[in-house]
């Protein structure tokens, strides 16, 4: 499947695309009128298409294959030049967006083909342990007040709450509240599980409660509850082996983003963006203003 999804063509094309876009981006800085009919191709391009090929096929391209790649690249470039000569790229949202989109895909692809090594993964895991945790859990008991059976379930609940907080007994009397088919004692449930049984809002409320004391009333999909969380466990780290599949996924994600960020950083550096004050206030510092390598993966400024 992989082979088919990312055939040679794709990379030849990607190469050409990069070349074309690069050339387009670049023409401002190297504006030599005489270069209009000149197509430059050099060691850099050759190395790039060769490397791309090698990553995909796990071997060096043959001379013949390399020749094919270069020819494709050239044909593509010539067509692109022609198209520009015809003005097909001017003031055309479609072309502009497609170019940008293509560029974005290209950057993502570059990140995707690189396979992480074990040590890279471990390093990533160590650096982001907080992302590879089992979710926190709560154990709690609750007393249910059925709004359909009581004229003022909230008042009744508050009354019982007062009783519970003033009496010494840690547990409510057996006759407080109403029956609910869900157990009154819920153990070791994560937020998902609580939401699945009581509804999302109830789960969120329970996870925000301070353990040890009776609180409420908290509303669920069924009515009102007094709740006492008696055990709260924070999320715990998953061992590396256990989390490995997720680590790979996140690593690739991160990789994609980093490549993109770096790329944009360079782009922002490359161009002189003139913005009036209003815009500047709006977007804040541009990614190009920070040193390369310091870029946070978080979305900042115009980078997105």
């Amino acid at each position: 499947m992989k082979l088919f999804r990312e055939p040679l063509l794709h990379f030849a094309v990607a190469g050409a695309g990069l070349f074309a876009v690069y050339a387009w981006l670049d023409r401002g800085s190297e504006a030599e009128p005489s270069a209009d009919l000149e197509v430059r191709i050099g060691e850099g391009e050759l190395r790039w298409v060769g490397e791309t090929w090698a990553r995909q096929w796990r071997r060096e391209p043959s001379r013949e294959e390399l020749r094919g790649l270069v020819l494709d690249l050239l044909r593509e470039e010539l067509l692109a030049r022609e198209a520009r000569t015809l003005g097909l790229d001017k003031d055309d949202t479609v072309v502009r967006r497609r170019l940008a989109q293509k560029m974005a895909f290209l950057i993502e692809d570059t990140a995707r083909i690189a396979q992480p090594t074990e040590s890279e993964l471990r390093a990533f895991y160590d650096a982001h342990r907080e992302r590879f945790v089992r979710p926190g859990q709560r154990s709690f008991e609750h007393i249910f007040f059925d709004s359909r059976k009581r004229s003022d379930a909230a008042a009744d609940a508050r009354q019982v709450l007062v009783k519970l907080s003033t009496s010494d007994a840690p547990a409510p009397g057996a006759d407080e509240g109403d029956r609910l088919l869900i157990e009154s004692d819920i153990r070791n449930a994560d937020r998902y599980a609580v939401a699945g049984q009581f509804g999302q809002a109830f789960a969120d409320a329970v996870f925000a409660l301070t353990p040890g004391e009776w609180s409420g009333p908290v509303e669920s999909a069924f009515g009102l509850h007094l709740v006492r969380v008696y055990e709260a466990t924070a999320g715990e780290a998953r061992p590396f082996e256990d989390a490995k599949a997720d680590v790979v996924e996140r690593w690739s994600d991160e990789q994609r983003r980093t490549v993109q960020e770096r790329y944009f950083t360079e782009l922002f550096r490359k161009y002189d963006i003139v913005a009036d004050e209003r815009i500047e206030a709006l977007v804040g510092p541009l990614p190009g203003d920070v040193a390369l390598g310091d870029v946070q993966p978080a979305n900042e400024g115009l980078a997105r």
Partner: peptide, 20 residues
């Protein structure tokens, strides 16, 4: 094409020519 209502399969230059 932008909205994915038409998808193009071919070489990148064929696609570019078509869109152009």
């Amino acid at each position: 094409i932008e909205r994915g209502l038409i998808r193009l399969y071919g070489s990148e230059s064929q696609k570019a020519v078509f869109v152009g």
